[in-house]
Design a protein around this nucleic acid. Structure first.
Lengths: 373, 373
DNA sequence: ACATAATAGCCAATCGATTGGAATAGGCCA
DNA sequence: TGGCCTATTCCAATCGATTGGCTATTATGT
């Protein structure tokens, strides 16, 4: 690790020492409820309810309506969503299950989800789910205690028992960037095509010895990127060596490990270019190669999947394949909203073309790696 | 509505064509409720409730208890959280209002919040609030429709009317990394000390002409970093020039703009080192300087606030001041939980020392900027 | 002017769980 | 055997909003 931590001399401060107890000020006046409005407007609560939610089937007299609206405004009335949910059996909330908030790709997906849900007034409960083995209390409860009307799952491995159980229970569920056996309803980007774009680019630069750092085989996205990679290599009639493919999870540490294993397995016969299935892994791999004395892109070209703002600032700046991740989040949320409205769902692959974002980590092959070990 | 999209080049694909309507499978058997368990166990619903939640004051006979537990297990009974919330007037959910999910610092705070809430089983509803002017329907409703028991706000400017309104309404609220006039209950890191650590470092390298890219003056954190910067400069008896200080928001574009304005204002008299109040701004500023032909750190040293994993991979790797951001999220959530339990709250500054993380973007001053324009 | 229809608004049940008070049964003591 | 106590369990109200059914009131038609 590069981190050299220098601690400064100790000091401790505390702000204003003022303290308050919320309970004291809270009771100043409890929030108005439907009955309060009804009483003050001299009508029944049911009438208030109908007026406020604009029930067409039983309109109120214009005069009554005005009076009710007026009183509601005066009292600052807001309908209690919990009571409403109990009666209507709708929470207007969805769950978003993510593997790790630290992964920068997640933020994009979340933004996509927000744009779809914010418009319709739905709320998003975010939970970090920890793998299929863990007790995973968090999102288990979310669903089975009826706190949400549906879930978006970004963590599912191919056979995640919890996912399958939820799907069977009938709670609307959409997988994002994932698929799971026997579960219908997923949105993924065109991973195979993304891999192809990457390989095409490397080939067009003149590379023929191309390797791959793959995602975990338990995750569908990882598999499809790898399959796409293999297909693209076949398309160009290029050799595929097992020693040029290393699997890993979607982390920086995993990428570093994969890079080391690649160097170990290949010896002096390292590929001249690498397609890495995740941004963070790419970062980790790049560091390992540089530390080993390889120059990027001179000795080895690197192209990674998923475009992030930070790719422009790495050393060297990373060539990436932009995958429409935000769109994916939006499409998934839209699909979930549809599913919750009893509409049919399907497994879809976003038709958006992955885009090559050209930077400095790829170039025509140099003389290759000839460092004695 | 499920969008069926057709792309230009006809690469549209659709996965398995199987589709299902959730409604059909859902009704296979509606979830068991309290009454179902009661009926089947031959007891009253109230008894079931007391047994399942382990009510000490009215214990059931051992035999009855076993029977109830058995039936509950058979039926897979889970208490409905909406009904429970209505009765108990507790949602066991909190709101987390963030300015922009794209900011990588947010992920850390979120993780801190999660560690505090996950243990106690509370859920987190995340909303992107858009500034104090916007209609901001999102988190307005969250609070006033009783969907959460409290909120953590990461967006508050010094006098955000919505924040003040919520605080007055008595809904427990804790500001994170922010403060707001007249609102008690906030957790911030020691920004002044962070700035001091940065300046001390630059001074120890031999810099005397030190500039600052500040956060927005409407945000308390930004102000305190700037105040800390000024104090540290005074401590070292170093000159402070207004042309060496530029304000901006916490974005990459803002940082770039600030850097340009700094070069414009200073002319050939640019500082030899810069303390930047946010990671993203630092990235943006660094790019502008490099594009202008400055070498970092030879011509200008840069140190930024907030440590992120990606700082190690920028070009050059960024020297940062690690602020205990995750701890801040955790402390804020803990404080909020306390506030919701009617305990007193205060404004606190985390005592954790900011840590210098030394990398390659800072070095002793070179000969300075002497490029004619 | 009378019958009928339309309209406005009220009543009461409901969603599902919690909780204070009442009721029943058995046990104990005199 | 009668009275009292305690351990269990049941009853019913409650949280706040929604909604089908019903009544009272007004409008319409002949």
């Amino acid at each position: 690790m590069v981190r050299r931590v220098v601690s400064a001399n100790g000091s401790m401060r505390q702000g204003k020492s003022a303290t308050t107890v919320f309970g004291s000020s809270r009771s100043e006046s409890r929030a108005a409820v439907l009955k309060d409005v009804a009483l003050r407007a001299g009508v029944d609560a049911s009438t208030v309810s109908r007026v406020l939610r604009g029930d067409e089937r039983k309109p109120a007299r214009a005069e009554t309506r005005e009076r009710i609206l007026q009183v509601a405004r005066e009292l600052g009335y807001r309908p209690n969503s919990v009571a409403r949910s109990l009666r209507t059996r709708k929470t207007e909330a969805i769950g978003l299950v993510i593997p790790d908030a630290g992964n920068p790709g997640f933020a994009e997906i979340f933004k996509g989800v927000q744009t779809a849900t914010a418009q319709t007034g739905w709320h998003v409960i975010v939970v970090e789910g920890r793998g299929p083995n863990h007790p995973d209390l968090g999102w288990e409860r979310l669903v089975f205690e009826g706190r949400v009307d549906g879930v978006l799952v970004l963590t599912a491995s191919l056979r995640d028992p919890l996912v399958q159980r939820v799907a069977r229970s009938g709670v609307p569920l959409v997988l994002v960037n994932r698929r799971s056996d026997g579960v219908v309803g997923s949105v993924v980007v065109n991973d195979a095509r993304g891999a192809e774009v990457a390989v095409d680019h490397l080939v067009s630069l003149g590379h023929r010895r191309i390797g791959h750092i793959a995602g975990p085989p338990t995750i569908d996205t990882g598999r499809r990127r790898t399959a796409g990679f293999r297909a693209a290599m076949r398309k160009h009639a290029l050799p595929l060596r097992n020693s040029w493919i290393a699997g890993t999870d979607y982390t920086e540490a995993g990428g570093a490990e994969a890079a080391r294993s690649l160097m170990d397995k290949s010896g002096p016969d390292l590929p001249t270019a690498l397609y890495v299935a995740s941004f963070l892994s790419g970062i980790g791999a790049m560091k390992v190669f540089k530390d080993a004395g390889l120059r990027i892109p001179h000795d080895i070209s690197i192209i990674v999947s998923d475009e992030l703002a930070l790719a422009a600032h790495t050393n060297p700046p990373l060539t990436t394949v932009f995958m429409p991740v935000r769109r994916m989040g939006e499409a998934a949320a839209t699909m979930l909203l549809a599913a919750m409205a009893q509409e049919p769902v399907a497994d879809i692959v976003l038709p958006d073309e992955p885009q090559l974002v050209l930077r400095a980590s790829t170039a025509p092959p140099g003389e290759g790696w000839r460092v004695s070990r």
